[in-house]
Nucleic acid binder design. Structure first.
Lengths: 352, 352
DNA sequence: ATGAAAGCGCTAACAC
DNA sequence: GTGTTAGCGCTTTCAT
């Protein structure tokens, strides 16, 4: 009541109210002193009465330690990253650390600003999903706090990275389509020069190269927006009516392909196969359900969390890239080239 | 070089290196002193050389002010909240404040913990999308920092709230269906006791009550998971084959309804109308595109941001509820009961 | 066991 | 203008 409005009671107010010293209050708060004697009780009462809450930041400042881990992702609206944030929060649960999340909106400038900002924070470590640009590389390499890169490899660097096995997963997807008899395949990818997509493309190419039959594989760079992607995929389908399968290398292309196919009355799961790299909720709910290569986000989060904690404890471990395996979910749009469904039922989906 | 590894150079190191006092360095950093004289230059050089970064937190502690605004949402994976975070970050851009986002995973316990945590933070204000439970009410009301509630009204309170006009938007949606000749309508809602859904239900009921014809309106509580919702909606469609329109009062029910309709070969946009409260990317991309009541997230974010800044400046303004109007996007699944499409083309969508 | 006092990194009021 | 100094809220020796 005797303090200026808006400012909260400090440890000193509690001490005064309980008739003890601030240090003593600190001891009580941090359990370094028995709680159930007259003094301990008095302190607790004062805390209660004044509505005292410890200032975490001041506490950390004094301890010269931090219980925060900064997370920078490109975009909250991408379901993959949204799930990543959720899973990382889950990992943080129960540990002494908490996640502080911000996004770069895929803008390298903002990304640098965010990293810069975090550098001025007392964060114990940084988890980063880099934007589609490697400008952040020097900043990370000279960072004084541990950084773990997630999902997107930064070329020519020896940073800690947790990513999925893009190459192998794509190759497997492509092999699957070839096994199913597809020979005219449309590969929709985002753009050149994006690490993940490049790796996925390489996987597709490798699988195609191993195949002996004559293939007609069309590679289409769709660009980032769904609307434009639908247009381009549609055009390509019109020009290549013999196409029997579409393999989309990132999730919004799948939505575009789905729409384009519907618009042309191409019956997915009957005349046309569709496979997506990266899953989304809608894919398993529509009918026919869209087959997808599922990125094990929970596992990625687990690995990233483990790695950053290790790094915080001991900075001496050698850095390295961890590749997490993806699962191909066998849903209804994954059919043979003759139109036969390989798997008719939802219940045969492989679990992640 | 003479400091312990992992700890960053402080303002004192810079001062020593530049041969000036810490206070002087502070003055240079904060532009309270001209930069381009020998001393100013020496300081800048020292900063450069040591790789000094200001510790934002310590700075804020000393200034007894904060440049952070805490945001607590129920769930990063809900596209509506994801967009909200993105839009709020956009609002924060250019201001002196930044957003620190965490989620409660719809768990009232975690929500309380998060609010408690923020109470111990030097945040200037709190933006909260409450979980589906009002347990947080007392905490907010006794908070020593301004709180603005977003999206979900907390009953019987006089807090600052920014929400959409659920009642009016639902009523308009329902009226629209009635005008289009629908008389057997399925209303899929999440569950009773959830504020937003209750308001939407009330809007639907009010519109139905105003109508003179005999109506058969089925209300179905789907529960939170899409799979279960699809099952229940499917069952209800089977039991009521005369149903000509489905109105889903939250976004994942729309996905469930879409899947259920596809599974039964009910042609959406031809035999069956579908209207969604809340938009998602997939809705405008599938064919027929799913009509949706669009919540103007950007506007919600704008209002919330404006409100919290006002509150931070002056806590004296009277609190109040701001209701933001939604837009009905006229897409292809919004057809008349006789099967005629009211609007055939995507291009006639109203803009948000 | 307990309280006084120093100090985390920084800023602001104050003297010089 | 410039450096000295006190202190933001807290923790942690270190005397008592």
């Amino acid at each position: 009541m005797d303090r200026k409005i808006g400012s909260r009671p400090s440890i000193r107010d509690v001490a005064r109210s309980a008739g003890v010293s601030p240090g003593c209050v600190s001891n009580v708060i941090n359990g370094r002193r028995k709680q159930d004697d007259p003094i301990g009780r008095a302190v607790h009462e004062a805390i209660e009465k004044l509505g005292y809450r410890r200032n975490t930041i001041a506490s950390n400042l004094r301890r010269s330690q931090s219980r925060f881990i900064g997370l920078v992702i490109p975009d909250f609206e991408n379901p993959f990253f949204a799930e990543l944030v959720a899973q990382l929060e889950q990992q943080a649960e129960g540990t002494q650390y908490r996640i502080v999340a911000t996004s770069s909106r895929e803008d390298p400038e903002i990304e640098l600003r965010e990293l810069d900002e975090l550098a001025g924070w007392p964060v114990a470590g940084i988890l980063l999903v880099p934007s589609m640009d490697s400008r952040c590389k020097p900043v990370i390499q000279t960072s004084d706090k541990p950084v773990v890169v997630i999902d997107r490899i930064i070329p020519d660097s020896d940073l800690d990275v947790i990513a999925v096995d893009n190459f192998e997963a794509s190759a497997e997807g492509m092999r699957r389509l070839l096994e199913l008899g597809h020979r005219r395949i449309l590969i929709a990818y985002l753009d050149d020069g994006i690490v993940n997509v490049d790796e996925r493309l390489a996987g597709v190419r490798a699988a195609a190269a191993q195949h002996s039959d004559e293939l007609e594989v069309n590679f289409l760079a769709t660009g980032p927006d769904v609307e434009g992607a639908r247009q381009r995929i549609g055009d390509l389908l019109d020009e290549n009516p013999g196409t029997t399968a579409i393999f989309c290398l990132f999730n919004s292309a799948t939505l575009a392909a789905y729409g384009a196919a519907q618009a042309r009355n191409l019956r997915l799961g009957q005349g046309l196969a569709l496979l997506s790299f990266d899953d989304s909720t809608w894919m398993s709910q529509v009918q026919p359900a869209v087959a997808a290569i599922i990125q094990p986000v929970a596992e990625i989060a687990r690995q990233a969390w483990e790695r950053i904690l290790t790094r915080i404890d001991a900075e001496t471990e050698p850095a390295g890239i961890v590749r997490v395996r993806c699962e191909l979910s066998q849903r209804e749009t994954l059919i043979a080239a003759n139109g036969v469904q390989e798997s008719a039922s939802r219940t045969t989906e492989e679990q992640v």
